[in-house]
Design a protein around this nucleic acid. Structure first.
Length: 721
RNA sequence: GCCCAUGUGGCGGAAUUGGUAGACGCAGCAGACUCAAAAUCUGCCAUUCGCAAGGGUGUGAAGGUUCGAUUCCUUUCGUGGGCACCA
């Protein structure tokens, strides 16, 4: 719309009821839609017709232009819009003498009788029209103040209350009450309708606002409101609320909506929050947009001219006006090509499809090929990927599915969000306005600033003051207030980040223990989904396990100890129990319990002094994904000449695990009292007899007959007395 | 404020569909081997009463369902993460 050269306020992609309109002139009630080729389709034409009628009924005039008109006859298009806007303006000026309607959006229609004022966003279209002459000066002053504030300030200073009265009053449609209309920056133009009904007894922000500007408060929830703060409950019974009196608030919501709809003064609506895509980056690395700018309009390159490839650049510095590096390329600029590039997730949202068919020069991926490979089995990522990459990847996939290019509409079969390894931060406390630092235990006696200190200068919580002083020139002259001769730091678990000086480098550990130990220790720390602070305490245990494994193959003094003997039943039982456990733990991403199962297995084999190749080689294959280096090494020591990666995975045999008897736990009234070894084939009557004859059970029965005996085969026995 | 996790020994954490709470590891204690150390091995290790045998209490807190609850239900408190002047 030519950068508002039309002299009218235009909104792009504005939502009206359930439609997204390409361009909307809300003041003039004129909407512009631009139709592409697919609007020539009969079915689509009918749909468009319905949409046009519906919007006309709401009082809007809808004008349609074809894509072709926009591209080739833009001057005519603009002229036409101008003419219509002019005629509309005249019409509206007459109507403006009449009263206005303010639409508000609320999730709590049950509180309609507690409304004490209305607040519009400062940017709201009606502000100018409804402001009374008496208030115009203050309103303009307030608007100037709001404009001077950056978004950042508005978000940061949440506690600060500001606003201005317009002088106008609105009528509550239910009880005719006159309620003052204010404007305030805490109401956002972009959310809902940009106007709220304020209920001070139920909403804390509204309450603070009312208190600050001394607006009288109506109480509709009786004792639930104590006059000192709002109570956002839904559990109170309404009073002072006309037809809602006596209703529980959460039930009243439905009643109120129905009443509002039957009176035709509003409607039920789900409000969606739009997430801003921000789909461009001012940098070099990223797919270039196939977009050319002409007279301020973005034009897509012809399909035949694709792909558009990144040009070679000498430098990656920004362009003359702060644009991306592509702005430095003559040929790029002369074509008026877009200089921003796409963000990382543009490509990462669909590259798995291209990987299926990477050499295809006709299409990104033959449908036959993607049908064969199907969805990605598992997606593992952190939560930040869940909102970024994952969101877009799902959208890409759904679009490609709708267009018929692929046969599935979700990219990933399974999603695992791994937890974060957090940092354990350390803090020092500087007495305000000085270069004096006070130890943690004494800091409450002073007015201090809390500062992050590099964790490498801290042993436990004791600060190495010399290292700290050398850290930055500012601290060279620092003095310290110690407790018991030590400077103690504060601790907090946070995201690991350079800015928090709590990062640790795994290189040192890898150097000391090897990559296998490090890898297994990370797995052993706990469930993969859980976040936890990094702590190397316990890495020794994993390292000892690998050494113990090594000793099953080699003796420190004698060298090779593994042999070709046949395995015993006991050894086979250990092996197959491990195969079963590792298989299921691996599939469930339960890596910490898998590592534990390996430890149990190696402990038991050591106890049996088992050095048999037939057992050990299977164990190595299981271990390979967990400790790849040592597994490969030992595999070759066993005489294999090919990689362990090519070995067949061991097959679990249930027959090795069959037991004939079990040591049953015996409870009296649910409390464990003893264990009795019994055959696994024993039935209820047989078990009852054995249990009742048991000395310890008899002691607890004290001569009484049991009320009931619960027997779960293969599990336990409970005697109820 | 909203959403999602989560709470079990000194510590990290185990515990199939409700069925022996504390597997495995760390730290700790005692011992073996050694001139000594490292490495390795053995035993103990929730808490409380008890010489012992054996009891009591225990999975953030309070209730409930059940023969039986870390597991299910209700309420509540704490912690971590994500989003947020979002009505």
């Amino acid at each position: 719309m030519r950068n508002q050269q039309l002299g009218h306020k235009v909104r792009r992609q504005h939502v009206i009821e359930e439609f997204i309109i390409d361009f909307a002139f809300l003041n003039e009630q004129v909407l512009i839609e631009v139709d592409g080729d697919y609007h020539n389709d009969e079915e689509q034409k009918q749909y468009d017709e319905i949409r046009t009628c519906y919007l006309n009924d709401l009082g809007y005039e809808l004008i349609r232009f074809s894509n072709n008109e926009i591209e080739h006859q833009i001057e005519e298009v603009i002229a036409k819009i101008s003419t219509i806007l002019k005629s509309k303006k005249a019409q509206l000026n007459i109507e403006e003498k009449a009263s206005h309607q303010i639409k508000v959006y609320t999730t709590r229609p049950d509180t309609i009788f507690g409304v004490d004022f209305l607040v519009l966003a400062p940017e709201h279209d009606l502000v100018n029209q409804i402001t009374t002459e008496a208030q115009r000066g203050s309103i303009n002053e307030y608007l100037t103040y709001v404009k001077s504030r950056s978004d950042r300030e508005r978000m940061a200073e949440v506690k600060q209350i500001s606003g201005c009265f317009t002088g106008a009053f609105a009528t509550n449609p239910f009880n005719g009450k006159q309620i003052p209309i204010w404007i305030a920056e805490y109401v956002l133009a972009g959310y809902g309708t940009g106007a709220i009904m304020a209920v001070p007894c139920g909403d804390q922000r509204d309450f603070l606002f009312a208190q600050h500007f001394e607006i009288p408060i109506t109480n509709i929830i009786g004792n639930h409101f104590d006059g000192t703060q709002a109570n956002p409950t839904k559990e109170a019974v309404l009073q002072n609320a006309d037809f809602l009196n006596g209703l529980l608030m959460k039930d009243a919501i439905k009643v109120a909506i129905e009443k509002i709809e039957s009176l035709g003064i509003g409607k039920r609506k789900v409000n969606f929050k739009m997430r801003d895509a921000g789909f461009s980056r001012q940098r070099y690395w990223g797919e270039p947009f196939p977009i050319r700018w002409e007279d301020g309009m973005a034009m897509a390159k012809e399909e035949t001219q694709l792909p558009l490839e990144l040009p070679h650049v000498e430098k990656y510095g920004p362009g003359p006006e702060g644009e991306g590096p592509l702005a430095n390329i003559e040929s790029w600029k002369s074509e008026n090509l877009e200089t921003s590039t796409m963000p990382g997730y543009a490509g990462s949202s669909w590259y798995f499809l291209r990987y299926m068919d990477p050499k295809n020069s006709n299409t990104f991926c033959d449908k036959k090929v993607s049908d064969y490979w199907g969805q990605v089995n598992v997606y593992i990522g952190g939560t930040e990927h869940a909102v970024g990459h994952l969101l877009y990847s799902r959208m890409w996939t759904k679009v490609l599915f709708d267009l018929g290019h692929i046969g599935f509409d979700e990219p990933f079969k399974r999603l695992v969000n791994q937890g974060m390894i957090q940092g354990s931060s350390r803090f020092v406390y500087r007495v305000k306005g000085t270069n004096e630092f006070v130890s943690f235990g004494l800091k409450d006696n002073y007015d201090t600033d809390e500062l992050h200190v590099d964790v490498n200068f801290v042993d436990g919580i004791e600060l190495n003051t010399a290292a700290f002083s050398n850290w930055k020139p500012d601290y060279a002259n620092a003095s310290f207030i110690l407790e018991e001769g030590k400077y103690l730091c504060g601790i907090e678990v946070e995201k690991m980040s350079k800015s928090k000086f709590n990062t640790v480098n795994p290189d040192d550990l890898v150097l000391k223990y090897g990559a296998d130990t490090f890898r297994m220790y990370e797995m052993f720390l706990g469930p993969i989904e859980q976040s936890k602070p990094w702590d190397t305490k316990g890495i020794e245990g994993v390292h000892r396990f690998l050494r113990k494994l090594w000793r099953l193959f080699n003796d420190d003094l004698k060298g090779k100890v593994w042999n070709d003997e046949n395995a015993s039943d006991a050894e086979l039982k250990i092996l197959h129990r491990t195969i079963k456990k590792i298989e299921s733990d691996t599939e469930n991403f339960s890596y910490n319990t898998a590592v534990s199962a390996f430890m149990v297995c190696v402990n038991e084999l050591s106890d049996l002094k088992c050095h048999k190749k037939t057992i050990l080689e299977n164990l190595l294959i299981l271990l390979m994904p967990y400790a790849p280096h040592i597994s490969e090494e030992l595999w070759h020591q066993l005489g294999h000449t090919t990689s362990i990666l090519d070995a067949a995975y061991p097959i679990f045999e249930a027959s090795y695990l069959v037991e004939s008897s079990k040591s049953y736990p015996i409870s009296i009234n649910g409390k464990l009292r003893t264990n009795i070894e019994m055959s696994l084939t024993a039935e209820q009557s047989e078990v009852e007899q054995i249990v009742l004859n048991n000395e310890i059970v008899q002691k607890w029965l004290e001569g009484n007959a049991p009320k009931k005996i619960i027997f779960v085969k293969g599990k336990m026995v409970n005697v109820v007395v």
